[in-house]
Computed example of a mutant assay.
Amino acid sequence: MTDGITIGQAAAFAGITVKTIRVYHRNGLVEEPRRDSSGYRRYGTAELLRLVQVRILAGAGVPLAGIGPILDAEGEDFTTALDQVEDDLTRRIEELTARRDTLRRLATGDRVLLPDRACAILDRMPGLGFSTEDMAIAREGLILVRALVPEGFDDYLAQIEHGLDDPRHVALIKLTWSAGNWAADDPRIEELAEEMAQHFLADPSLLPTLTGLQDKDDATTRHDLLTHHGEDTRPGWSRLTELIQQKLHTTGAELP
């Protein structure tokens, strides 16, 4: 076949599109054949072979920029180049596998955003009588604490674990969370604030603290973000939190 084949035929024989061939030309992977007397480019066996080689390497995941050096290498250089490609593909496979596993974990909720220790706390909550809504707020709160005060997160988890082992503390926390649905001027909030203040004074270890927060330049901003989380949907919380802090301040207690 002295005249060669058209670009459309070359694309069909190589298993690619005409557009792809032009991309290969622009990237210098396949030289453009000369035009015939009619002005059409004709592809011979050499160009067709090169097209097939490029297509195979591209299909194997080799970036276009790396295909040329591989095909132009000889002997040990060619083997070394292929080994490097294999190593790169292995790393990409590992990265993609990790991303897939992350997506699978996300399908079970926000657990991927929290360590196993925090997830174990969340797993305990249904058995202690916390509602699904309570768990959602708790999960979001833990994610925020981990993001805003990472250095104090383990200590914070230890405090929660300690509190969950105290039946009276658990009962009060559940009542506190229910109070979030009360109106801000509900008289029960004043009574609950007094009870909570006395509870923390009796056992200061139950008062939640965030180790390392006070050392940050923007500690107030971070504290406010954490303290007011969830108040949009639970209006009673803001008033309750304010009253508890006021009552503890009047006793001279050191607040975190």
Rank of each mutant, 00 (worst) to 15 (best):
E94R: 09
S38W: 04
I56T: 14
T102A: 11
L103H: 01
G66H: 07
T90N: 13
E47A: 08
T108W: 03
T45P: 08
E31T: 14
L64M: 09
L96E: 10
G39P: 06
E32D: 02
H25M: 10
G39L: 06
E94H: 06
E76Q: 13
R100H: 04
A107F: 01
Y40N: 15
E47V: 02
T108V: 09
R34A: 09
L64C: 11
L106A: 00
R42D: 07
E31A: 09
R26V: 03
L57W: 15
A81S: 11
D87K: 15
A60W: 09
V52P: 01
V30I: 15
H25E: 06
A107W: 03
Y24A: 13
R42Y: 04
R104Y: 01
A73Q: 06
I56C: 08
V30H: 05
T97P: 03
E86P: 05
R100I: 05
Y24F: 01
Q84Y: 06
V52N: 04
E76M: 07
Q53W: 15
P63C: 07
A107C: 05
E74P: 04
D36M: 00
I70C: 14
R35N: 03
E94Y: 01
E76V: 12
E31V: 10
A98H: 01
D36P: 05
G75Y: 09
E32K: 06
H25V: 14
V62S: 07
D88G: 10
N27Q: 14
V30N: 07
R50F: 12
Y40H: 00
I56H: 13
E86I: 15
R35A: 11
E76L: 11
G61C: 02
T79R: 14
F78Y: 06
A46K: 12
Y40A: 13
V62I: 10
G66I: 09
V62H: 10
F78K: 13
I93W: 13
G59D: 13
G75I: 00
L71Y: 15
R104L: 05
R104E: 02
V52E: 11
